[in-house]
Design a protein around this nucleic acid. Structure first.
Lengths: 193, 193
DNA sequence: TCGCTCATGTAATGGGTTACATGATTCA
DNA sequence: TGAATCATGTAACCCATTACATGAGCGA
């Protein structure tokens, strides 16, 4: 799958591995990410498969860059993938839910701590979608104004991110309220006889 | 991570690999899943690490089963994990969003097809949370009524699943409406939630 | 001086999927 | 008769993470 994000970014313009990692973080980062290592190995594989080619761009006061460009074959492969209909739903793995599911029901305090930390994290994530992501999109567009029509699609995925975080936060509040209510209705051992 | 789902299920009662796969599908299936192969290899590793032990239960008219049971060490390891606070947010990878992000803006028809298929899939998923998941929980509880207090936590994760699917569906409708409007005034099939 | 950004990669390991291999019983 | 359920596993492969290795320039 990372293959297609890399092909997708290269379909906009030629890029180095470093560029790809950078723009991936700013654009698809909230629904797909990868480490730099993975990007470099993916690019190497794409070149071996003939879907991209590369050349070295010497840097004057910066390190040399290996810049990759889509080949015709690469562009065709990407279009073929775009046209294929996605019919499988991948499970969104979430270790917080695993923890909650298998928690000891009597350890309400521990659970509440976990959930409150998540509230902070998901708020930060929502902030990022509202501030950083639009900024990154603008930065990209100022380099390539011809991608303006694509920005509408980017915006749809950003809307998804915002809605997702809002739902997560609402659910967290609900869960916290529920557990708090349970907790206070259960007196501690000291009061029992 | 699968390690902890397996430990979690074994903390309820001793089980075979087949059992674990079965109950995982019915319980944590919507936020974590695994193939049978993976379950068997995970169990083997748990036994090698001394976190579980196993014995063969001969089957009379069915195949023999290798039943695993948590060791003290396994129970301690699981508790340690439960107490550790989850502070990293894992990115929920979604190839549909990748496709949407990198789509050709002029191919509105292709996009609409993709999105409409997703509506069907996510409706099915929502149905599953509303019908199959509660049934599976009941089935498990009828075997082990003492897990009744845990069922409240299971229910919280189910609520998460329902909310997630509803948000996804709302977002899909929004995206479809948006693209239809852009595309001009071509009437299409209905898609009500 | 410390940390960040720029810039490239290899090696080892771990996690997960697919294919392969086997075989009885039950139900439509 | 054919599919589903029950039940176990190995081998090969692919994908992803972490650690390792290098090194210049810039701003606080």
């Amino acid at each position: 799958m990372l293959k297609y994000i890399v092909l997708g970014l290269l379909s906009y313009r030629p890029m180095s591995g470093y560029d790809i990692q950078h723009w991936m973080g700013a654009s698809t980062g909230h629904f797909w990410h990868a480490t730099l290592t993975q990007v470099y190995t993916t690019l190497k594989k794409l070149e071996a498969e003939g879907l991209a080619d590369s050349h070295i761009e010497p840097g004057t006061d910066r390190p040399d860059r290996r810049v990759y460009r889509l080949t015709e074959s690469g562009r065709a492969d990407f279009k073929r993938w775009q046209a294929s209909v996605t019919t499988d739903m991948e499970v969104k793995k979430d270790s917080l839910l695993v923890k909650l599911f298998f928690a000891a029901p009597e350890d309400v305090e521990g659970l509440l701590t976990q959930l409150r930390v998540q509230v902070t994290l998901h708020r930060q994530q929502r902030e990022a979608y509202e501030r950083n992501v639009p900024q990154a999109m603008m930065a990209f567009l100022s380099d390539q104004p011809e991608l303006m029509p694509n920005a509408e699609l980017w915006e749809l995925t950003r809307q998804y991110g915002i809605r997702y975080e809002e739902t997560y936060l609402e659910w967290l509040h609900m869960a916290i309220q529920f557990l708090e209510a349970r907790h206070s209705s259960r007196p501690t051992d000291e009061h029992k006889g």
